[in-house]
């Protein structure tokens, strides 16, 4: 006869630690130690060394904040975020709502929009740069323009602002599917009875979305908005790989991470003090932004 309550081989705390330790160790070694090390480096003149001795206090921070190019890079980020955050939010929510109403091939359509998420930023950037938005006459976009009787556009040359279209459309294509899935998950959480009740009360279409769907999607919306903002801050891959030329990264459209990379690692240099100070400034800015966003959206506030 089997025992009804098998004696635990080990007690619960041991299992807890056995399961948590690998993750915790990874987090410590790959996140917290580098973070604190970086903080330490930011107070030193640390060129070509990770164990600097030349303490410079806040000089690295002062140098960066007085560097108009670093300040410009923050403006670049704000411009990018101002485009990409609302646009991705609206597009992914719109797609999620549309796909909710599709009854045939639902899985197919969801996959179609999700697949770009699996594409590498580097590869996508190369496709955008080399074929779609090539500035030469034979680029796809320019071929269409010349067929329509327009002049070809030098998309990425920096003489105009069209590179924003390239960068924003690239990021949108890459990430819209992922946020669409988050919205679909959020929509599935809403009790269908509420829609029925709303329908009985005569609310349909826009009114149903405005007064039922959107308010109930709020937790998802807040999370999506936050993630979008963080990801916009971390813009690097698509900028770098879209705009890089054989002559180096061009002197425009440098978001903060790209600029920090260029000045701290450019040409094989290792200016780790400046780079660390820059990431610390960015971390602070992200923190402030998320606190403001939390306050505005009242996430976790008393008003739930």
């Amino acid at each position: 006869m089997a025992r009804r309550t098998p004696a635990p081989l080990l007690n619960r705390p041991v299992w807890f630690w056995a399961l948590v330790t690998p993750f915790l160790a990874g987090l410590l070694v790959f996140v917290y130690v580098p973070l604190l090390w970086s903080l330490w480096l930011s107070f030193y003149d640390a060129r070509n060394t990770v164990t600097p001795t030349d303490f410079v206090g806040l000089a690295n921070y002062v140098a960066l904040l007085n560097d108009r190019l670093f300040v410009d890079s923050m403006v670049t980020f704000v411009a990018f975020a101002a485009f990409i955050v609302p646009l991705t939010f609206a597009c992914s929510l719109g797609l999620a709502l549309l796909l909710q109403r599709v009854t045939v091939f639902r899985g197919f359509f969801r996959s179609v929009f999700f697949i770009p998420t699996a594409v590498s930023y580097v590869i996508a950037a190369m496709v955008w740069r080399m074929s779609f938005f090539n500035g030469a006459r034979f680029g796809l976009a320019n071929t269409l323009l010349t067929d329509l009787g327009q002049q070809p556009v030098n998309w990425l040359g920096g003489e105009n602002n069209w590179y924003w279209l390239v960068l924003v459309s690239l990021r949108l294509w890459l990430q819209v599917g992922f946020y669409m899935i988050l919205f679909i998950a959020g929509l599935n959480q809403i009790d269908p009875q509420l829609f029925e009740a709303a329908a009985l009360d005569g609310a349909n279409g826009w009114r149903r979305f405005r007064y039922v769907t959107f308010p109930l999607l709020r937790p998802t919306s807040v999370a999506v908005a936050m993630l979008l903002l963080f990801n916009a801050f971390q813009a690097f891959d698509e900028f770098y790989n879209t705009l890089i030329t054989a002559g180096g990264y061009p002197p425009f459209a440098r978001p903060p991470l790209v600029y920090l990379y260029l000045i701290s690692f450019g040409g094989g240099a290792q200016d780790l003090g400046i780079g660390s100070a820059g990431t610390m400034i960015l971390t602070l800015v992200i923190l402030v932004f998320s606190l403001i966003q939390n306050r505005v959206l009242a996430l976790g506030g008393g008003g739930q």
Binding site: D67, G158, E159, P250, F252, I263, G266, D271
Partner: peptide, 19 residues
Amino acid sequence: WTAASGQAYSTALSNCVLN
């Protein structure tokens, strides 16, 4: 000629020639 110097110079050049 550090990386930051190079960035500052090419930014100036780009701003003059392109813009």
